[in-house]
């Protein structure tokens, strides 16, 4: 296949993914340019998470091509970790390292993967903790923080690696309602600064204000792909219309 042009950071071509006999992804084609913000939505079990988990190879795709910043993900990619440090990920359940303080959570991968010096890693960690507005929590353990604070730490932890892309896997779904906004604010700031983002979320307000494109998935397929205005006002596919009517009427 041809090498993608440099400004395309993620390219998925005819990607299929099976779990046993179950086909989780069907012929996924997607290109994400540098600086683009993509929101992925769809009913549960539609393959949204699986798709973004394939991008940093937490799941292996069965066939098709995935190219990240010019490097194709294959079995032969010896240093998958090299790709992973360019692709940050934020999980639904935060997944902070419970046995480490917040500061150490932010320093670990910098030290081990980026080989940053201790002093510099600490400085970078504090910088990003300030960005997510919780520098005063640096010496606490994750369990001592609220869900929203933990998720902001998780975002800061991903940012510490200075990734090219950040993937968000339903970052606000596990949060109490009053904490959703503080996380969305951080994500919106990040988007404004030009970070390339793929975000699986049902926060339609966020999608409207931040996304360059909204992707709707159902049953493992990308059913519709459009700019937010079009997506919300003139959804073309019947399944999209049905989904939107279900989540927007409440």
């Amino acid at each position: 296949m041809t090498t993608p042009t440099p400004e395309i950071l993620i390219q998925m071509k005819s990607v299929n993914k099976y779990f046993g006999n179950f086909q989780a992804l069907k012929d996924i084609n997607l290109e994400v340019k540098k600086g683009e913000k993509i929101v992925v939505c769809g009913p549960s079990g539609s393959g949204k998470s699986t798709m973004i988990r394939c991008i940093n190879r937490l799941e292996e795709h069965t066939d098709g091509h995935i190219v990240i910043d010019g490097n194709e993900l294959t079995d032969k990619v010896k240093d998958i970790n090299a790709i992973r440090r360019e692709v940050g990920m934020v999980f639904q359940s935060f997944n902070l390292f419970p046995h480490m303080t917040i500061l150490k959570n932010l320093m670990l991968a910098q030290r081990l993967v980026r080989k940053t010096s201790k002093a510099e890693a600490r400085e970078i960690a504090m910088h990003f903790l300030e960005r997510v507005k919780i520098p005063e929590q640096a010496d606490k353990y994750p369990v001592q923080l609220s869900g929203g604070q933990q998720q902001r730490v998780a975002i800061a932890r991903a940012l510490c690696m200075k990734p090219e892309i950040i993937l968000f896997d339903e970052p606000t779904s596990a949060l109490d309602p009053e904490m959703i906004n503080e996380v969305l604010e951080v994500m919106t700031d990040l988007a404004k600064e030009g970070m390339t983002m793929i975000c699986v979320t049902h926060e339609m307000g966020f999608a409207r204000s931040v996304a360059d494109r909204v992707i709707f998935m159902d049953a493992g397929e990308i059913v519709e792909e459009a700019e937010p205005e079009d997506f919300f006002l003139n959804p073309k596919n019947e399944r999209t219309q049905k989904f939107l009517s279900q989540i927007l009427t409440h």
Binding site: R85, M89, P98
Partner: peptide, 21 residues
């Protein structure tokens, strides 16, 4: 917790580093 190990993997930690740390 599997999620913790996934977070480690997503940050680029090798299998050995995940195990040790």
């Amino acid at each position: 917790d599997r999620g913790v190990l996934e977070a480690g993997a997503a940050l680029g930690l090798s299998a050995r580093q995940k195990f040790i740390y």
